[in-house]
Amino acid sequence: MIEERLKAIILRALRLDDFTFHDDTKAFQVPGWDSLSHMVIIAAVEKEYGIRLRNVEIIKMKSVGDLQALINSKLHKGSG
């Protein structure tokens, strides 16, 4: 389940009005999400959530659902 918060970050970074994200949505399916904007999205996610994604984690991510799960696990660890 992709949270509204993550969706808003991605839409803002890509300057999109709307897009329906699913867990298995891949970057290449989203207009404007190429390698250059990928870095912008990662930076925006890190800033917004106050977390750090490691390079190896960024490389292993396959879908928006993976990104959401990674954010969740970081937030969970941070609070626990």
Binding site: I9, R12, A13, L14, R15, L16, P31, G32, D34, L36, S37, V40, A43, A44
Partner: peptide
């Protein structure tokens, strides 16, 4: 319309 890299 412009796209991409709207945020930082």
């Amino acid at each position: 319309q412009t796209f991409g890299n709207g945020g930082d």
